[in-house]
Amino acid sequence: MEEALDLMRRMSPRQSETALSALLALLPHQHTDLLSQVDLPLQVVPDVDTGKDFILCEYNRDADSYRSPWSNRYQPPLEDGTLPSSELRKLEMEANEIFAIYRDQYYEGGVSSVYIWEDDEKGGFVACFLIKKDGAKDGGQGKRGYLQEGAWDAIHVVEVGPDEEGTARYCLTSTVMLSMTTNNKSSGSFNLSGSIRRQMSLDLSVADGHLCNMGKMIEEMEGKLRNSLDQVYFGKTREMVCTLRPPPEGIQLRLPEN
C-alpha cells in the first residue's frame, strides 16, 4: 500500500486515472483501501429528469448506478438503491442548493453536488461536497482568455460526529486536483498540474446548524489549498526552473519596478 501511494505522488497528476487503474489491476484485493486514499478526477452527467448536471463519485454509487442529488433517483434506475433518511435528504437538498450559490461565487461556473448519508459506525453522518470546474469552457479559452485547458476538482468529505451536549465533532478531508495548460506559438505549451489533500477537525456548536459549520470549514480549507498551490507548490516548481537555468543577474532586480 505504501508503495502504491508513493507511486501516486510521483506520477503526473494528469495521468492519475491510468496510474490508479494500473494499481487496481495489480492489487485486486486492495480496491477499497486504494479507492479510499486516492482521489480521481470527477465525472459529470446530466440528470435525466431535470437535465441538471451532477457529479459521479464513490459516495453516490450503488452497484453500477449513481444517485442524482436533484431527483434522489439512481441512474440507470436501481430497484433497491441506498437512499438517505428523509431527515438527511432534507439537509442534502438544502446543502445542494446553498453550495451551488457558494460555487458560483467562487468559481463563476462549474458543477457541484452534495451527498449525505448515515454514518452507522460512529452514529453521526457523512457529507461529501464536490465541485468540478472546467476553466477553459467559456469560449474555449476561459473567461480571461488564457487557458487552453483548465480543470479543477474539489472533494470535501465531512464526517460529523453525534451531537453531544450541543457540540459535534467535524472532521474534514479535502482534496483538490487541478491541471491548467496555456499554449501559444511563441512560448509553447505550459502545463501545471497537481493534487493535494489536507485534513482538519473542529468541535463546533450544533446550534449554528450543520450546513453553516461545514460550509465555513470548507470555505476556509479551499482558500488554504488554493493559496498553498499558488504560493508554495507552483512557487517551488518555478524555483526549480530557476535553479536549472538561473536568470542572468540584474533581471530579477528589475522585475519589481514594472
Binding site: 501516486m8 505522488r9 510521483r10 506520477m11 503526473s12 497528476p13 494528469r14 512560448s187 509553447g188 505549451s189 505550459f190 502545463n191 501545471l192 498540474s193 497537481g194 493534487s195 493535494i196 489533500r197 498551490l229 507548490y233 507552483f234 517551488k236 516548481t237 518555478r238 526549480m240 526552473v241 536549472l244
Partner: peptide
C-alpha cells in the same frame, strides 16, 4: 519540475 512534499505538483512545458 516536480514538487511533492505532502502533495504532487508538476510543471511540464515544451516549445519548438
Amino acid at each position: 519540475a516536480h514538487y511533492f512534499e505532502e502533495g504532487n505538483v508538476q510543471l511540464d512545458s515544451k516549445n519548438e
